[in-house]
Design a protein around this nucleic acid. Structure first.
Lengths: 106, 106
DNA sequence: TATATTTGCAACCGATTGGTTTCATTAAAA
DNA sequence: TTTTAATGAAACCAATCGGTTGCAAATATA
């Protein structure tokens, strides 16, 4: 059972859940109301998100509030870092090109 | 057949392929040498990456060079943007907290 | 205490996934 | 021209996925 953050965000429903609970904690029932699936399906998604520590629980009586573990999201950002370097370099090269063209015009 | 960039990067082999061809174009055979799978499996991954436009082909005789479509990677970055706002705000709030503590010490 | 509500978990199901083997096509090399 | 090399596509397979229904446990409410 592979359970990493990239696999977690590959499902559109899970991405929507992540966005939904990013700013405020919510119960499974409340989350499920936003989707066209059963509460149990949402519960399954929450389990997957919990397993890869993208989400944390807070128990209040019989209710469980789920909220986003925002720091975990940084792992995606971290992986993107290597590509960001590339596209920024390419952008600068493009910038240099424009400068060269300007110089030629003068 | 859902084919979006998030599903594309959910597989670890595909992520490795992306990193591999990010800086220089490579043929399927050359790519496959880096993995413990058959050339055909890599070919399948390349098809998926091509379908969601993460990768582009350049034909040279009977060889096909695959390289990363770096701009497409920005889509992940774009999705992350909304969370980056959150974690930067939290960081600033933490910063404010430190300032408050400092003031109290004085 | 008896009942209703909130939740997680297990069992099941059809579709999809990542892999393999086999084959056809195209281009280079002998 | 015949042979070899590089590649994509199809058929198949076991494992996983996302969903459902049904049930058990725990907590709140009447």
């Amino acid at each position: 059972m592979r359970r990493d953050i990239f696999q977690a965000i590959s499902d559109p429903t899970r991405r929507a859940i992540i966005v939904l609970i990013a700013l405020q904690a919510m119960t499974p029932n409340a989350i499920a109301e936003h989707f066209d699936t059963t509460r149990q399906a949402v519960s399954k998604h929450l389990r997957i998100l919990t397993e890869c520590e993208l989400v944390k629980q807070e128990h209040h009586g019989r209710e469980i509030y789920y909220s986003l573990e925002i720091d975990k999201m940084k792992e995606i950002d971290k992986w993107l870092e290597q590509f960001r370097k590339i596209w920024e370099t390419r952008f600068n090269q493009l910038d240099d090109l424009f400068l060269t063209i300007k110089k030629q015009k003068k």
